[in-house]
Amino acid sequence: MTSTNPIRVLVAKPGLDGHDRGAKVIARALRDAGMEVVYTGIRQTPQMIVETAFQEDVSVIGLSILSGAHMELIPQILTGLKERGMEEVMVIIGGIIPNEDQAALLEMGVAGVFGPGASTEEIGTFIKEGIAGARTSVGPPKRSGKSQEKDG
């Protein structure tokens, strides 16, 4: 894969939460920023998300969750990715995630957490930089770590 190939992103809504204004806005903004975006729609189980990510061969998964079920669902997705040998896929989260959970999720391997008020431009840049880093070096992309305090 050369770095001129468009970045493929899966935007997904895990759990029962039906509020997908944010997910759709992000999907469209990332598409406008030149990425190839697949949106799963609502009510996706962790297994469905991992499977779609595999089928669509994405390098980024953006999870949008506002129901508070993140600490149950996101670890399952990370585990599922590992089992499919997809741990290099960059996982980012948008939604209402309390600070202490953000820290725990970053520890588990989530690349970035974007809270209310984060701009689509900021998220697009985060993805591009992370993927560029991954394409030139070996191993998972480094998280900038800055997004956290900004969005907390």
Binding site: G15, L16, D17, R43, T45, S67, G68, A69, H70, M71, E72, L73
Partner: peptide, 22 residues
């Protein structure tokens, strides 16, 4: 909560992590 709204009991697989949240 969402399981009640979508017709799943609290012990349903899809209710995990959602019980009593919203």
């Amino acid at each position: 909560d969402l399981p009640t709204q979508i017709g799943y009991d609290s012990d349903h697989q899809l209710a995990r992590g959602e019980v009593g949240k919203v």
